[in-house]
Design a protein around this nucleic acid. Structure first.
Lengths: 151, 151
DNA sequence: TATTGTTATACTCTATAACTATA
DNA sequence: TATAGTTATAGAGTATAACAATA
């Protein structure tokens, strides 16, 4: 995402009622945050989505691809293309669930866990930059409010 | 966006540290909100982006296409394709800026203003649904926090 | 020379449906 | 028959560069 913050250029547009639209604010905040994270993760050759999958694979919950799709709000068809490169790089493995052989459980390898720890640090940095204007208490409040919308 | 909330299916994944990542929460909240708004606006044959442009065109600020691009975090090249159908439908007009004939000012027509008012009502409904779990005071807080990240 | 809008192109993301293997 | 994963395809969204008109 090369998109500039491009704020100074059009300050007068803040007059618009769009500025009061929480949906619009969510889109802008998400774009800025996503852009910051994506930039940081480039150094590890990871996409934001791949980082999400890797983190879930590290959770110890051994999610199925179907569960990943639900949690990440993606179609199951997209999960395949998301996991393939991670598996090729040896970061995660697809383990057939012996209780139901249709399921493939996604689990991180040692290399995957190591990379996830590095990525996590970069993400935290990016998020801190994005929320630099907010106090730590405000960040906690935001997190709580977003969680209740998101789940 | 057909994406389901798909929460019940993978509640145990909430254990993952991803749940504490404000970037991930922003993405999920934005997806849910965007989906609700998009569904509502379908009845007016409006995309979310088009609604944003239309609202800015109604602001009385007569933005240039360049200013719209900055405010909406889009490349100038995309603004053309965004405005063309609105102009064809007679909702906005491109007015050459006589002070600088390179600029085209985007202004809403009477029909555009009427449609924007309808769309605004639908958006408010969608946003209210998205934030149903939050008290009115909490919605104000969220709006403030998001604004400070977004601008 | 620099900037606005325009056009074209390629790439990513998203949505949909059909196929296979297991149950 | 129903579900999990896979594959293919089309459409929407995004990034990039070149061009004409204007400054």
């Amino acid at each position: 995402m090369t998109t500039t913050r491009a704020t100074a250029e059009a300050d007068r547009l803040l007059e618009s009622e769009l500025t009061d639209d929480p949906g619009f604010l969510l889109v802008r905040a998400r774009n800025i945050c996503q852009g910051a994270v994506a930039t940081k993760l480039e150094s590890l050759d990871l996409r934001v989505r791949q980082y999400s999958v890797l983190t879930l694979a590290c959770s110890g919950q051994a999610p199925t691809q179907r569960e990943l799709a639900g949690f990440l709000q993606l179609d199951p068809g997209q999960i395949v293309a998301l996991i393939d490169p991670l598996e090729e790089r040896g970061l995660v493995r697809r383990v057939v669930d012996e209780n139901d052989r249709r399921n493939k459980l996604i689990v991180a390898t040692a290399a995957g866990r190591a990379l996830q720890r590095k990525a996590r640090v970069l993400c935290d940095e990016a998020n801190a930059e994005t929320m630099a204007e907010l106090s730590l208490a405000e960040r906690d409040i935001l997190q709580d409010l977003l969680f209740r919308i998101a789940f």
